[in-house]
Every structure is written in C-alpha cells, then in structure tokens.
Computed example of a mutant assay.
Amino acid sequence: MNSNFPTVTIDVTLDRHNAKEVLNAILHSILFHRLFGTVKPQTFEVLDVTMPGVADPEMEQLVTEKVDIFWKGIESGANKRGQMIVTFSEKKAKKSWFQVYAGEEEVPWEQWIVNAEMRQPKSDRDRQEFNANLASTLVKALNVMLTHTSSERGRTAVPLITNAAGISPFPIKITVKVGGVELG
C-alpha cells in the first residue's frame, strides 16, 4: 500500500475516569477539521479545554461506537495501550491489467493515529497533576490539528472534491487496536 500520505500522531495518557470523554472529544475534533460538507458545530468541555466537534447523528454514532469498542478492549485485557486510527480516503477507479476498469478502490490520503495509554492516579495530588498534564496534552493536540490542517502539506493532501453531497465527500474509517490487535 502506498504510504506517501501524511500521518498525524497524537499521544495521550488517560485514566478510567475520563477516557471515553477525552477520546470522544479528540475524534470529534479531528473530524471537525477534516469534514468538508456543511458541518453543524458543537463543543466538548474536557478538563477546562474546549474542543470542537461535529453535531451529526451519523458521525456521533460512529465515534461513540469506536470509543466503546476501544473501552471494552482495554477493560477486558491486560494490555492498557491502544490506538484509534482515523483514515480519510478517496475513491479511485481501479484498473486491472491492460487498463481495464475493475471497479473502485479506496486510496488513503491522510491518517490520524491517536495512541492512548491507560494509567490510574494513586492519590488526589496525583489526580490533580494527571488532569493538568492531560489538559496540556489536549491543548497540544488541538494545536497539532490546527497546524497540520492549515499547513501546505495538510492542504495539498486533500484530493479534489468532486462530490459535494453529504457531510464528507470522502470515505472515513476509524480503526481500533488494543495491544496491536484490531477490534470491532
């Protein structure tokens, strides 16, 4: 597979108390910055950090479903590390030998990798420090999103939009991995 497309990585350390909320906000923020249809915005307040999101039932269901799969994977195993990978693709004509049209294939043009690790603070003081670090990580993640999507490389990665129907003219796939194993 061709991997000449941009890959953006966000590393985050979570605890049981706020894992779902944080992952939900991060995924929504990525989608907010990469959906090209008419987006109805919403915001998520996580540890006093305001993160943008998409108020679309289909996207909300997709994000909630993937966060739940991630959570169940983390809870059911000994492995406390996982990934949520958001891949944006475009549909291209697939050609076989002799340039014969053989249907369509999805060709990725950008990928976002959210590396998540679960930890538990031991005391109230640890909790305060943990939450402050997590809030700082969320601000950095938003900065990475804004910087990438407004950069030359981020803008040129987006293929021509030939279909303006719907909230996204491109196929979106969210993959969940825990301990290197794909779930869901």
Rank of each mutant, 00 (worst) to 15 (best):
Q111F: 12
W109S: 07
L62Q: 05
D56K: 09
V67W: 00
D48K: 15
F130L: 02
T147C: 05
S76L: 12
N18V: 14
G180D: 14
T43C: 01
G180P: 04
E45K: 02
T156Q: 15
W112E: 03
M118K: 12
V67Y: 07
I167G: 11
I10R: 05
W109L: 02
E75Q: 11
F98K: 13
F70I: 14
E110F: 01
A135V: 06
A164C: 03
F98N: 14
K94Y: 13
I26E: 08
H17L: 13
A25G: 07
A141C: 10
F98E: 02
L14G: 08
S3N: 05
G154S: 02
T137R: 07
V12W: 00
N143A: 06
N163P: 07
E90C: 12
D56G: 12
K20C: 03
R119K: 12
G103Q: 00
T50Y: 06
F130T: 02
V158Q: 07
L183G: 04
Y101W: 10
M59P: 07
I172G: 07
V46K: 04
D48T: 09
E152V: 05
G77Q: 11
L27E: 03
W97Y: 13
K92M: 00
E129S: 10
I10E: 03
L160P: 13
D68E: 15
E110V: 05
V49F: 14
T147G: 09
G166Q: 06
K20Q: 14
E65T: 13
R155A: 10
W112H: 01
N2V: 02
P121H: 11
D48E: 11
L35T: 04
M59G: 05
R155D: 10
E21V: 00
K91V: 02
E75G: 04
I174M: 01
T13Q: 08
E105W: 13
L27R: 06
T43D: 11
P121N: 11
L146C: 05
Q120R: 10
N4G: 04
K177G: 01
N18Q: 15
S150E: 13
D15R: 03
S29V: 01
G179T: 08
N115L: 12
G179S: 03
F70A: 13
V22T: 10
I172P: 00
N24C: 07
F5V: 04
T50E: 08
T43R: 09
M145W: 03
S76A: 13
V63I: 09
W71T: 14
A132D: 14
Q83L: 14
T149M: 12
E21I: 09
E152N: 05
K95F: 15
K72Q: 15
M51R: 04
R127I: 09
L183V: 14
L47E: 01
L62V: 07
F5R: 05
R81D: 02
T147V: 08
T87V: 00
A141S: 13
K20L: 11
G166A: 10
S76R: 15
W112F: 05
